Amino acid sequence: MTKECMECGREIYGRADKRFCGDACRSAYNNKLTGGTDKLVRSVNRKLRKNREILSRLNPEGKTTLHREQLLKGGFDMEYVTNTYTTKDGRTYRFCYEQGYLELDKGFVLLVRRDPRD
């Protein structure tokens, strides 16, 4: 009895429990299975990583103030954050992983970096 690859239908040689003729077919098959749901997750993760990279680049010292337009010019998307932190006095910091910002008056933002041990 010969077995066929679950992706391309070619005959499979080798172990009795083998389901694909090679890595390319295995990857293609699994990508088809998870393509719809993973597409959204990959898109959100890409935006979060980009936001974090922009914050890191503009805040090399760990704390700085700049105009909001500088973030937006670099492609920062204010809709995507990993978490928020609200202080006792009601100010809300928004974070992309350890990099965060606080919106200030007159279009300025305070960029901060959270200590990874916190």
Rank of each mutant, 00 (worst) to 15 (best):
G14M: 00
G14C: 00
R15K: 07
R15C: 05
R15W: 01
R15E: 06
D17E: 11
D17T: 04
D17C: 01
D17I: 00
D17M: 01
D17S: 07
D17H: 07
K18M: 01
K18T: 00
K18N: 02
R19L: 12
F20L: 03
F20A: 02
F20H: 08
C21K: 00
G22W: 01
D23A: 13
D23G: 15
C25K: 06
C25F: 04
C25W: 06
C25P: 12
R26T: 00
R26N: 06
R26G: 04
S27C: 03
S27F: 09
S27M: 07
S27D: 10
S27T: 06
S27L: 08
A28P: 06
A28L: 08
A28S: 14
Y29M: 02
N30M: 02
N30K: 04
N30Y: 12
N31M: 10
N31P: 12
N31D: 12
K32Y: 09
K32V: 03
K32Q: 12
L33P: 09
L33A: 09
T34W: 06
T34K: 07
T34D: 07
G35Y: 10
T37D: 11
T37P: 05
D38F: 13
K39C: 10
K39G: 09
K39E: 14
L40P: 00
L40G: 02
L40R: 12
V41N: 13
V41R: 12
V41L: 13
R42P: 05
S43A: 15
S43I: 02
V44Y: 15
V44N: 13
V44E: 13
V44R: 13
N45L: 11
N45E: 09
R46Q: 08
R46V: 01
R46C: 07
K47Q: 14
K47W: 00
K47D: 11
K47L: 08
L48D: 06
L48A: 06
L48K: 03
L48I: 07
R49Q: 09
R49H: 15
K50V: 02
N51Q: 09
R52V: 04
R52F: 03
R52M: 08
E53R: 12
E53I: 01
E53F: 10
I54D: 11
I54R: 05
I54V: 14
I54L: 12
I54C: 08
L55Y: 00
L55D: 07
L55I: 01
S56T: 12
S56F: 10
S56W: 05
R57Q: 10
R57T: 10
R57I: 02
L58S: 03
L58M: 05
N59S: 08
N59H: 10
N59M: 09
N59R: 03
N59A: 07
N59G: 11
P60G: 06
P60H: 05
P60E: 08
E61T: 15
E61A: 15
G62S: 09
G62C: 11
G62L: 04
K63M: 11
K63A: 12
T64L: 03
T64C: 15
T64S: 13
T64H: 06
